[in-house]
Simulated scan of single mutants.
Amino acid sequence: MVVSVLELRRRGYDDDDIALAQATQDAQRRVGAPYRTLPEILAGKHARPRPSAGPEDLTARQLGRRGRLGQAALLADQAALAETDPDRATQVRYHASGLKALARKPVQLEFDFFGGGNVSLGHQFIDAIQARLLQTEATPADRMQALATLTMIVRHLGWQSYSCDKTAADLCDLLGVEKANMARTLALLEQIGAITRAKRGRTKIITINPEGAFRGDVNRHAEAVDRYRAEIVQLRPEPAT
């Protein structure tokens, strides 16, 4: 049975595959090899067969398992199977593959966790701070305020830095607390080693150990730790005894 080129296209073979099969067929004829039809040649390693299954009716449950783009890709695949024009079917399958790629891309629902650089926060750091706070004579309210302030400090760490971009006054505005309360909170955090305040000019810069919290390229984390040890740890005055 002779199969036309149009039928081969309908089955999903592109023009390059068909041309290669025709060239192979001519070469075999010239050397006296046994005759093979185009479908037999195309069934080899160069074949890109089109799925034989026809379009099926999709249930709401089948569609519901996918997002909108996934549904659109599935419907496009079904439309390609039902298409009689091979060129149109090829175009539809091309667009279906693009929809599938978009459907696999992560979706940002509300929060952009990576747009400004994510913050890496060590659980051991938080556990240690909580344990140290419990060993102080601070009230439960003061301990909660200290943890909230520490979270805000970590939130505003500089890029690949151990310094907070916000001053004590800025933290007051962000958390809605009085300056006197913030002063006590920062003193408590400094007392237990959660933060260090380094004076630069007339401003006290709030710093934090980058081994506990870091914002930036993880490959630059070691550099930040080294700078912290050189600029903060070695220059920090010993506590009074």
Rank of each mutant, 00 (worst) to 15 (best):
Ile126Thr: 12
Arg200His: 10
Pro51Asp: 10
Gln91Leu: 14
Asn181Trp: 08
Glu110Met: 10
Arg197Met: 11
Pro39Leu: 01
Ala33His: 13
Ile126Gly: 05
Phe214Asn: 08
Arg10Ile: 00
Ala43Val: 02
Gln28Glu: 14
Gln135Asp: 14
Leu186Pro: 07
Val233Cys: 03
Leu81Tyr: 01
Leu147Asp: 01
Glu56Phe: 03
Leu186Asp: 04
Glu56Tyr: 02
Thr136Asp: 02
Asn209Gly: 03
Thr84His: 04
Pro239Glu: 04
Met1Val: 10
Asp26Pro: 00
Leu81Thr: 02
Ala96Pro: 00
Asp87Met: 01
Thr149Gly: 05
Gly216Ile: 06
Arg11Phe: 00
Asp226Ser: 12
Leu150Tyr: 08
Val2Asn: 12
Val177Met: 08
Ile41Pro: 00
Val5Cys: 03
Val154His: 01
Val2Ile: 13
Ala101Asp: 15
Gly98His: 12
Ile192Met: 08
Ala198His: 13
Arg197Leu: 06
Leu20Phe: 11
Arg132Trp: 03
Gln160Trp: 00
Arg68Glu: 13
Val218Arg: 12
Tyr35Cys: 11
His95Cys: 13
Ala194Arg: 06
Lys199Glu: 12
Ile205Arg: 11
Leu171Asn: 06
Ala146Lys: 01
Asp26Glu: 13
Arg88Ser: 12
Val119Leu: 15
Pro106Asp: 01
Leu109Lys: 12
Gly212Ala: 03
Lys204Ser: 15
Leu99Gly: 07
Leu102Phe: 07
Gln135Val: 06
Thr24Pro: 02
Thr59Pro: 04
Gln191Pro: 03
Leu188Ser: 04
Leu134Val: 04
Phe214Tyr: 15
Ser120Pro: 00
Val107Leu: 08
Leu157Asp: 09
Gly216Lys: 07
Arg220Lys: 14
Val107Tyr: 09
Thr203Met: 06
Pro51Ala: 07
Ala169Gln: 14
Ser52Met: 10
Glu178Lys: 15
His156Ala: 06
Gln234Phe: 12
Met152Ala: 14
Glu178Leu: 06
His221Ser: 08
Glu178Thr: 13
Pro237Asn: 11
Leu42Thr: 01
